[in-house]
């Protein structure tokens, strides 16, 4: 793409700054609230810095995140469930996505349609049957049950997105590998998969976030307080007690931090390591 002139550079930076303001303003408000010890019910005006700076809220939160769980325990539950769901979604979906991208077979279009339909379904659209089925299987209060449910929500989406990624890989590269004597699987593993990984990474992050930020289904499927996830714990205190806004802010902040960390990590692997150099030979 063409390079930027000096004025364009300034203009771009200005736009970026505006968008960043839009992005960060509400986030800053959350961070600020988490350290605000000076108001006891709720903020009534725009305040930039805490009136009384305090770590108290975090200390309370860490020991007691709700439902008799400490924060690390709830976080662990969340991570187990959402990583599990993301992993299964990619594992079960990757080969299917590749087949959709590269093979012709009867029912291919119908299958893609079914995937899109599955991806379109909001978690709520399956909650009624899941609630009954998971209860009937005796998985109702276990993390495994929740993981399965979240996998169901995430998988079709992953397949759909991965198919696009595989399709975007130039077929000529695969044909070159075939000519070199590689079989279908080796070609998939060595050529298509690495090239498609950025988009698969996106799919995995989405799958992870579906589970990590889900609470409505969680409350339907988990009864034991031990298995409450972080999102559920936060939703449990929405509007509950007097200083709930501070508690909510602190919880939200702590909950979001690992995701942000994960994002920075993924971003690197997605956008820098994988792709460049491979295509240009």
């Amino acid at each position: 793409m063409p390079k930027l002139s000096r004025w364009q550079q300034v203009f771009f930076q200005f736009i970026f700054f505006l968008v960043a303001l839009f992005v960060l303003l509400p986030l800053w408000q959350t961070i600020y609230l988490a350290f605000e010890g000076g108001i006891h019910w709720r903020p009534t005006e725009l305040v930039w810095l805490p009136k009384e700076f305090t770590f108290e809220i975090f200390a309370q939160m860490w020991a007691h995140a709700g439902q008799n769980l400490s924060f690390p325990e709830a976080l662990a539950n969340s991570l187990i469930v959402s990583f599990g769901a993301a992993f299964f979604s990619i594992l079960l979906g990757a080969s299917m996505a590749y087949a959709f991208a590269r093979f012709r077979f009867p029912g291919r279009k119908a299958g893609l349609f079914a995937m899109l339909l599955g991806a379109m379904l909001p978690p709520v659209a399956l909650m009624t049957p899941f609630y009954i089925l998971v209860s009937a299987l005796g998985l109702k209060t276990s993390l495994l049950g929740l993981m399965i449910v979240y996998t169901a929500f995430a998988m079709p989406f992953c397949v759909w997105n991965m198919r696009a990624a595989f399709q975007a890989v130039p077929k000529e590269l695969e044909e070159a590998a075939f000519l070199d004597g590689a079989n279908r699987f080796a070609t998939f593993w060595r050529v298509s998969l690495p090239l498609a990984l950025p988009a698969i990474g996106i799919a995995a992050i989405v799958a992870f976030l579906i589970g990590y930020s889900e609470f409505a289904m969680g409350w339907l499927f988990v009864e034991k307080p031990d298995n409450v996830t972080l999102a559920m714990a936060i939703s449990g205190i929405i509007g509950s007690s007097a200083n709930s806004w501070n508690r909510l802010a602190a919880m939200a902040l702590l909950m979001s931090l690992p995701v942000v960390a994960l994002f920075v990590l993924f971003q690197k692997s997605i956008f820098e390591q994988m792709l460049f150099g491979n295509i240009e030979e």
């Binding site: 960060l24 986030l27 959350t30 930020s213 999102a231 806004w245 939200a252 942000v260």
Partner: peptide, 19 residues
Amino acid sequence: IFILPWAVPEFIGALVWLR
């Protein structure tokens, strides 16, 4: 920076905007 809103779970984002 721009990725942050997505990193924040949707319902937290909604809470933030509600606030």
